[in-house]
């Protein structure tokens, strides 16, 4: 299934766009998304093990099951303040 992922900060800079599409297995989990994302967008591989994923407005762990209807965001560690 194809999901749309919103990117921020260095992830957005490396992809060159704010939203990307990533193909993952049906009923794929966050862990699948992280793996597929760097395969399909290799310019982000330097961030691979640091990427955080949010579904809606909450952080999602690797076991969270994703659906194409979810609002999914992906970004490196935060640095506000």
């Amino acid at each position: 299934m194809k999901i749309t992922v919103r990117l921020f900060a260095k992830a957005r800079e490396l992809a060159g766009r704010e939203r990307i599409e990533v193909e993952i297995p049906v009923s794929g989990r966050v862990a699948d998304l992280k793996r597929s994302l760097v395969e399909q967008w290799p310019q982000m591989s330097a961030l691979a093990k640091h990427l955080l994923v949010a579904v809606g407005t909450n952080y999602a762990d690797d076991q969270t099951v994703l659906s194409p209807a979810d609002e999914i965001a992906c970004f490196p560690p935060v640095s506000g303040g």
Binding site: F8, A54, A73, F75, P76, V78, S79, G80, G81
Partner: peptide
Amino acid sequence: LERLKEVVPIWK
């Protein structure tokens, strides 16, 4: 402040 720097999705 400390928690803001850890969890709030803002970047500099």
